[in-house]
Write a protein that binds this DNA or RNA. Sequence first.
DNA 1: CAATTGATGTAATAACATAACATTTGCAAT
DNA 2: ATTGCAAATGTTATGTTATTACATCAATTG
Lengths: 132, 132
Amino acid sequence: MTTPQLTKNQSLVFDVLEKAEGPLSAYTILDKLRDHGFRAPLQVYRALEKLLEYGVVHRLESINSFVACAHPGENCHSHGIVAFAICESCGQVMEFHDHEVDHRLMAWVRGQKFKPEKTTIEIRGLCEACAA
Amino acid sequence: MTTPQLTKNQSLVFDVLEKAEGPLSAYTILDKLRDHGFRAPLQVYRALEKLLEYGVVHRLESINSFVACAHPGENCHSHGIVAFAICESCGQVMEFHDHEVDHRLMAWVRGQKFKPEKTTIEIRGLCEACAA
DNA sequence: CAATTGATGTAATAACATAACATTTGCAAT
DNA sequence: ATTGCAAATGTTATGTTATTACATCAATTG
Ligand SMILES: [Zn+2]
Ligand SMILES: [Zn+2]
Ligand SMILES: [Zn+2]
Ligand SMILES: [Zn+2]
């Protein structure tokens, strides 16, 4: 899928995420956009819904937050499952793909006749700087 | 770690999860235990905290719910990373372990000097029955 | 223009989770 | 048995995340 032209609200939300050091909650995004006219959570959630659909933003389920894709222009969706390492101290997020992991997981679910739609892999821990 | 004798509240919460067909939210558990004297969310969350610590219950991050471990008596924690396939239609959960997946993920984070603490792998989709 | 579609605005509410503080219970040391 | 401590519990209030419902606006199209 190619990313269509973003609307005003979608651009605002995306810009906030791109400029952020790490993942942000929807309400944190809302606060950062109050000066631009945002008043309600739904304005953020609706924009995020589209950005997730376009694959330019990822949702981190384990911390209820959102992050801009680390592979701009590449169309992340096409790389298979995306995995994240999330530093619980500084919030830094590393994003990566591993086809062997994809393969093993998909082989297992196929054996169960399970039809996968969306897979989450999130590793929480400490980044190099924070672990020191 | 061996599982200590459960307290009254821990037992009640665990029994509800064991008898359930699928994962339950903390508030659903609360409702099921009102007849047994539960009045507040914290009574559920505190019991869950211990049950998670003992490894007899798992938290499904992507659906804010909890499920009894599918491997009773085995001490799930010792099997490495636990992965789940969650049917979005009927709620059924399958739990499995794959050492190769563990190995690949841990190798990657080690290469980044990232120190992993807790890993989530959750595959949402449709089970065999629901996909038909 | 009328109809349709997608985006937006706003208020209210639902769902999930924790903070703060008081009380009770079980158990060990004196 | 009493004292002291740690773990568990009870209770109220609050904080955080997400959705429902409904109204309006803008662009497209027949
Ligand atoms: Zn990405
Ligand atoms: Zn860090
Ligand atoms: Zn388990
Ligand atoms: Zn199903």
